[in-house]
């Protein structure tokens, strides 16, 4: 998991667009969780408030549908 890098990729030209933030886009959302499945905080992910809010909601929705884990096997 890449950490420390503090850029909001949603505003970069070749980055993902905000419209891609959706609970079905697991590939994108999994970049914003740790290996344990925890949501990466804003101070680390570099997201601004808006993006983080959208990502947070999408991850929680994905978790509800069992598309993403609440906790991973190793930590159970």
């Amino acid at each position: 998991m890449i950490r420390k890098k503090k850029v909001n990729r949603f505003y970069e030209k070749d980055g993902p667009s905000i419209a891609e933030i959706h609970y079905k886009n697991i590939e994108l959302l999994s970049r914003f969780v740790t290996e344990q499945g925890k949501i990466i905080p804003r101070r680390t992910s570099g997201n601004d408030a808006k993006c983080q809010r959208l990502v947070k909601r999408a991850i929680k929705q994905a978790r509800h549908l069992a598309l993403m884990p609440y906790v991973t096997e190793s930590t159970k």
Binding site: R57, K60, Q61, R63, H64, Y70, V71
Partner: peptide
């Protein structure tokens, strides 16, 4: 949304 009640699990 029904997602939110599930949030409590996250804390465990």
């Amino acid at each position: 949304e029904p997602t939110l009640p599930e949030d409590s699990k996250t804390a465990e």
